[in-house]
Design a binder for these strands. Sequence first.
DNA 1: CCATAAAATGTAAGCGCTTGCATTTTGTTA
DNA 2: TAACAAAATGCAAGCGCTTACATTTTATGG
Lengths: 340, 340
Amino acid sequence: MTGNKTVPTLDDVAKTAGVSTATVSRCINTPERVVENTRNRVLKVIDQLGYTPNFGARVMAAKRTYTIGAIIPTMENAIFARSLQAFQEALHQKGYTLLVASSAYRPDVEEEQIRALVSRGADGLLLIGHDRDASIYQYLKQREVPALIAWTFADDAPHPCIGFDNRASMRALTEEVLKRGHRRVGIISGATQGNDRARQRIEGIKDALTSNGLDPANLNIVETKYEIECGGEAFEKLMSFKKPPTAILCGNDVLAVGAIRRARELGLDVPGDVSITGFDDIELAKVVFPALTTVHVPHREMGSKAAVELVNMVETKSAGSSAELNTTIQIRGSLGHAKN
Amino acid sequence: MTGNKTVPTLDDVAKTAGVSTATVSRCINTPERVVENTRNRVLKVIDQLGYTPNFGARVMAAKRTYTIGAIIPTMENAIFARSLQAFQEALHQKGYTLLVASSAYRPDVEEEQIRALVSRGADGLLLIGHDRDASIYQYLKQREVPALIAWTFADDAPHPCIGFDNRASMRALTEEVLKRGHRRVGIISGATQGNDRARQRIEGIKDALTSNGLDPANLNIVETKYEIECGGEAFEKLMSFKKPPTAILCGNDVLAVGAIRRARELGLDVPGDVSITGFDDIELAKVVFPALTTVHVPHREMGSKAAVELVNMVETKSAGSSAELNTTIQIRGSLGHAKN
DNA sequence: CCATAAAATGTAAGCGCTTGCATTTTGTTA
DNA sequence: TAACAAAATGCAAGCGCTTACATTTTATGG
């Protein structure tokens, strides 16, 4: 028997079981190709030795890892959590393991993470949003690693995506705001650089303004990081104008929650003095007071559909197809009528 | 030049650059060992061919991956987010990549994830809490993969840990509650099965009760999942008793927030009718209304210290040492005096 | 300009696994 | 029981990389 200080290899198993490495390998990967008797013997030895396949070697020899990678902009808040959880569950069911990395909304970090995951053998990748250097897509293509984009949808997208129309969704929400008499609206947006979703949401707001005869030009937009605290600061900044907005549309719920909190600190009533809306409808939206009017995104559906489609792309080596999901507007306490 | 349909290998680079594979390898791993001229030439070819090392092969040959794995109970809420983010940042700074997997609080899934990460070459692992099958620790030991435990601390722990004393922290919080005259307290805890932190927190509450001359025996404990909704249900259950508690201590902020929300829905005033406390002090705690009295955990500090220690364990092959961090009690609006 | 040490580079042996093909064993049929 | 097909197993060639060791080139000094 082999020494007990080192990790057992296929070879060790083969030797103690008195078979060839090929048979051991078959016992693991294609058990039906090994006669029961031998198989049991081998499995017993595997168990006894505590053998586990060396992944690196396996990948190298077989080219498949049953691993899917996902790179999300942040793990700090729950924006991507629920859909990722659903993604993971669906993947697990299909026998895949999910590995997650976060980019902190930084393109350079994202690229690094993509490479890390791909070189670690990810069979496929889930990415958020389209905006990305062409060289990355080229890299993925060369490596033949299928990538699926989530959180956005566009017919004409060059890559398959499972998501929703950020622009139209935000436009619909804005219509609700305008419908309540608001004419001076402010925007708190996440950084638009490298973030197509953020840009589209702003576009959606402009669409609504325009179609209501308002000029999008005199729109106050504050761009900041997607953090609660930043949302608060941006809010304060917007409210400090001579003619402050009566409604503030935020790029996501996190920013909106920060705004609401700061409003309270400043003694401003929401929605009495100012209405605030978010986007995404994460748990936070219902917890904050007043509850947040926001765009509800089908997180779990997006996650599980993405899993199914991505696995399909991996297994059939197909280009993959896109799917558009619907969002709905959630009217809650934070949106009220304009006071004058 | 090699064909353009396949992924370039070290060999391709070597050939086009007119050097040996060893030199190419050195250009990548120990650039100072190759003369500038050659190095530049090789790097240019690497760039031109879009070469990236094959990770599997690399792991196999070098036995090091500069990858650290972390398995957290959940990604659904922000409990582990901040500390994980800090962990990741510190790791990144040291040249390591973090790969994350979540177990959904399920031991079997956790074990699976541990194996997945280890076989994928993780140099070290960050795990949450001690409770775990002995066979897992044995597996890790055999594989010589160092593991660091976070979110808990104990002198006598068999494995190095970076965390805090859950029991003492909860005890301190409970003292604050009792100090305000509460005598009937209820507990909403996460599942204690396989979760030492949850158990210790309960013990802490009992400690405080006992030392205040109260009998821990007639304590109402509702065990549930760590989800907002579940916190609400548990709350309703506790409040439906003939003599409902005047203070409810929750196992974490998520449960507490669920309880607060349900209180509002039921028309109960917090803290007028019932006080509610949490644990962890995540963002949610400050956002909810009334703000949550809770135990503040040094998330970021825990994350970055864990990174430093774990990398140290990996690089020096040492057993690693534990560190205890301090928590503080955050008194906020959700805790008030008992009404009678 | 030559000897010699130091620096740069090349050679080739694995790392642990999968799998096409060859060989052996088992089962079937006449 | 012989002949042959099918099933089970073994053999051995890689997969792409790192690295100890061997070899070649460059630098140094007399």
